[in-house]
Simulated scan of single mutants.
Amino acid sequence: MVRHEKWLTAVEDVAELDDPAEARAVLAAVMAAFARCLPDAARGWLADRLPSPEAGPVRDPGPANLESGTDVEAAVARRLRTTPERGRYLTQAVLTALARTDPALAEELRGRLPRAVVETLAPAGESPRDAASHRPEVPTRLSDEEVARGLRHLTGWSGDRHGIERTVQLPADRITPLVERVQREARAMNDHAHVERADGGVTFRLRTGRQGVVTEPDLWLAERIDEAVAAVGSGGRPG
């Protein structure tokens, strides 16, 4: 098993991060994304070789539907609420740090990941800090292709560059807790979800500004809505 503190230090150094807590979040996001590239058996193999903080997300990271480096960097970006460019460099930094601390595990992981992931995420040599590391004041609008790619990793969403939506069917007593949780998530992200209730369900619609465009923060909020639906819909209540 790779030594956790040594790996964290290497991630912090290679990615030029500010503190160990940030490195820990990056490491968890990247390894969870890699797990979504692997079948269940390989996820177990990877989790058994990781320290406990990262093993949990690897064992149950979500559907195994990431097939390329672009998919991985987008998943990392959504989890860390940053740009895809930043997600790419952070992912490359984690791979480089793993190669420094446990070369055998790094090589075996590369052998198990889809070739399209390994080839796309080959380090480019540019410093992660030189990538677009902060959300711009005005988020960049996404194209239909970019929206479609983002929706592939969400549950039950549809739409295009003008807006996305998801309708959820739930018992009546769970609709209000779900809506309240979604509204809290939206406020925390300085975003807004349009909510339309109907008998037996609720529809969430996301877009940015009056122009009706979709941006990365809309996809981030959609992912948080998916998490809220899973928690409340399974009997959980928002905290």
Score class of each variant (00 low, 15 high):
residue 98 L to Y: 01
residue 98 L to I: 03
residue 131 A to E: 06
residue 139 P to K: 04
residue 85 E to H: 04
residue 97 A to V: 02
residue 99 A to Q: 08
residue 123 P to I: 09
residue 91 T to L: 04
residue 75 A to L: 02
residue 106 A to T: 02
residue 62 G to A: 12
residue 63 P to G: 09
residue 58 V to W: 03
residue 130 D to A: 15
residue 80 L to T: 00
residue 73 E to M: 15
residue 121 L to G: 06
residue 69 G to M: 01
residue 117 V to W: 02
residue 129 R to Y: 00
residue 58 V to S: 04
residue 141 R to Y: 06
residue 64 A to T: 13
residue 122 A to F: 01
residue 80 L to C: 05
residue 91 T to C: 12
residue 97 A to H: 05
residue 143 S to V: 11
residue 100 R to E: 15
residue 76 V to P: 05
residue 122 A to P: 02
residue 84 P to I: 03
residue 89 Y to Q: 08
residue 126 E to S: 07
residue 64 A to H: 04
residue 91 T to D: 08
residue 76 V to S: 02
residue 137 E to H: 03
residue 117 V to I: 04
residue 141 R to N: 07
residue 79 R to G: 09
residue 98 L to A: 01
residue 86 R to T: 07
residue 93 A to R: 03
residue 59 R to T: 14
residue 62 G to I: 15
residue 129 R to W: 03
residue 79 R to S: 12
residue 125 G to V: 13
residue 76 V to F: 04
residue 108 E to M: 02
residue 114 P to D: 12
residue 118 V to Y: 14
residue 59 R to F: 04
residue 119 E to S: 11
residue 109 L to V: 14
residue 76 V to A: 05
residue 60 D to Q: 14
residue 89 Y to T: 10
residue 95 L to Y: 10
residue 124 A to T: 10
residue 68 S to W: 00
residue 112 R to S: 15
residue 125 G to H: 07
residue 77 A to Y: 01
residue 141 R to S: 13
residue 98 L to H: 01
residue 99 A to H: 09
residue 83 T to A: 07
residue 117 V to Q: 01
residue 86 R to E: 10
residue 107 E to K: 12
residue 120 T to F: 08
residue 100 R to L: 14
residue 133 S to A: 14
residue 136 P to K: 00
residue 72 V to Q: 06
residue 143 S to A: 14
residue 126 E to R: 06
residue 87 G to P: 09
residue 59 R to C: 00
residue 118 V to N: 13
residue 141 R to Q: 12
residue 58 V to L: 02
residue 65 N to Q: 12
residue 112 R to M: 12
residue 64 A to S: 15
residue 129 R to P: 04
residue 111 G to K: 11
residue 80 L to N: 03
residue 100 R to W: 04
residue 106 A to I: 05
residue 106 A to V: 11
residue 64 A to V: 10
residue 60 D to M: 08
residue 72 V to M: 06
residue 140 T to L: 07
residue 88 R to Y: 12
residue 118 V to W: 13
residue 60 D to H: 14
residue 85 E to M: 03
residue 109 L to N: 07
residue 137 E to L: 15
residue 115 R to L: 14
residue 69 G to P: 07
residue 119 E to F: 02
